[in-house]
Design a protein around this nucleic acid. Structure first.
Length: 423
RNA sequence: GGAGAGAUGGCCGAGUGGUCGAAGGCGCACGCCUGGAAAGUGUGUAUACGCCAAAAGUGUAUCAUGGGUUCGAAUCCCAUUCUCUCCGCCA
């Protein structure tokens, strides 16, 4: 959530930058500023009433002590009207605050200066490409066919047990999952991240904290009886560790990594994009999350980007890095790099990681702060990235490494799988 | 699920109607002491919002959360949430 003070002091800039996310916020910003003015005026009135009330209360106490009942009772009369008007202002203030918050919470984050203008994924800027494109034989097939040929991922069985988007991993497929998870976690820990095993369900406050609510309401599975959300990413519980926390400057950066299942309803998705492992309701992901000093968050974003690139390199997958354009960026992000691997048999790029700097957007929602060098309390910056999400990595590994004998595993994974070939 | 106890500052912990944003201790910061350190000692040490150009200052709110009683609530009442203990169930 954007800071109200910032909006007030940089009104025109905020409007212009939101326009780069294709959001015309002029009217909204203007009414936010008007409401904020009303908020301050009302609070002044309220505080004055309460202040007078406090003074009278003290005087009454003093008079009682001195045995001056009469005078005390006289003063009490005044409190009746004061309390009435205080109540009135209090109600007004509450209503104003709620209105203000509802508007603020619906404003997306401001894009970083380097974010290209654009509306669709076609406008994303390709900033890096790397790796050999695999040359497959004519009889190469998409991963869903490989999954059934080698009986490693069973979509039909998932349909039976749960429904579409909940595949069952079997045999070497299951082992490959476990290998990738450990491979990703080990790499993150080697890079200085602390391993976290978070809850897979979160409460409403946490879902608000990282910005899933109210923006993505309806995209999360919700356990109604207990009012808990299944996490769409480990980012939610891991970042919320620091909700309402004030860190010391020396504690920054905070680096956490978590493996978790991720649950997404993906309401509105359809067609061939959802085929096989391309889009699932439940999938596995290793997420890296950092809390960083505002002065260093963009350097850190680059480091995180390199970490992800290193993983793909070790997996010997051809990949490219995109800087997302304003229109394709997430609600909460200021700058996002997407990683895509080339899935040879589908002949398309699959998004496998998204690395973002949220600046103070999440921090402001969850009141994640730190004491800076001068002892001032400031909002921290939060960043996260997938390192990595499994299903599309699996899809690419299967498709790109298929050969007559089976599917070859990259060398870096063999220590984790215990075998070199799916056959 | 049943019965009971509880929730106070970064932590421990005192506080049952006013002088309480809250004793005391620990921790932390800075200073003194020291060759340096420990010990000792002094001072300071919550957050948010408002007023003020701003620092200083000052107003308001906050003792789990939300209501209520009262001139006045950490303290009394009600509801909710959470924690702990015992019982039940259970990997």
């Amino acid at each position: 959530m954007l800071e109200i003070n910032y909006i007030r002091e940089h009104t025109q800039e905020v409007i212009e930058r939101l326009a780069r996310k294709n959001v015309d916020a002029t009217a909204r910003i203007n009414s936010i500023i008007a409401i904020d003015q009303k908020r301050r005026d009302t609070q002044k009135l309220l505080d004055d009433q309460l202040g007078e009330l406090n003074i009278i209360a003290k005087e009454v106490g003093q008079l009682f002590k001195e045995g001056k009942q009469q005078e005390a009772n006289l003063l009490k009369v005044r409190t009746v009207e004061l309390k009435a008007s205080a109540k009135k202002f209090e109600d007004q203030l509450q209503a104003i605050l709620q209105e203000l918050n509802e508007m603020l919470v619906l404003l997306p984050n401001l894009p970083h200066a380097s974010v290209p203008a654009g509306k669709t994924p076609d406008d994303n800027e390709i900033i890096h490409s790397e790796g050999e494109m695999p040359k497959l034989t004519a009889d190469a097939v998409p991963h869903w066919d490989l999954c059934s040929r080698y009986d490693i991922v069973d979509f039909e069985l998932g349909n039976k047990i749960t429904g579409a988007g909940f595949p069952v991993y079997k045999g070497k497929g299951a082992r490959l999952q476990r290998a990738l998870i450990n491979f990703f976690l080990d790499n993150a820990v080697a890079a200085g991240y602390r391993e976290i095993q978070p809850p897979l369900m979160v409460n409403e406050a946490s879902a608000y904290g990282t910005g899933q609510l109210p923006d993505k309401d309806g995209q999360m599975y919700f356990a109604t009886i207990d009012k808990l959300y299944l996490i769409p990413t480990a980012e939610v519980p891991v970042t919320n560790i620091y909700r309402d926390v004030i860190l010391k400057a020396a504690e920054l950066p905070v680096k956490n990594v978590a493996y978790s299942n991720c649950f997404r309803r993906e309401a509105g998705s359809y067609g061939k994009d959802v085929r096989g492992l391309n889009r699932l309701h439940q999938f596995d992901k290793v997420e890296i999350v950092q809390v960083e000093h505002p002065d260093r968050s963009y350097e850190t974003l680059e480091v995180m980007k390199e970490h992800v690139a290193g993983l793909l390199r070790k997996l010997e997958l051809p990949f490219r890095v995109l800087r997302l354009c304003g229109g394709d960026m997430g609600f909460t992000s200021a700058l996002t790099y997407d990683f895509e691997v080339f899935s040879a048999a589908q002949e398309k790029w699959l998004e496998v990681s998204s690395v973002s700097n949220f600046e103070s957007f999440q921090a402001n929602r969850m009141k994640l702060r730190f004491k800076d060098e001068n002892g001032k309390t400031r909002l921290a910056h939060t960043l996260n990235g997938s390192a990595l999400a499994l299903p599309r990595i699996v899809a690419a590994l299967l498709e790109n490494n298929q050969c007559a004998e089976g599917i070859k595993m990259p060398a870096a994974l063999q220590a984790y799988t215990g075998w070199s070939m799916i056959d």
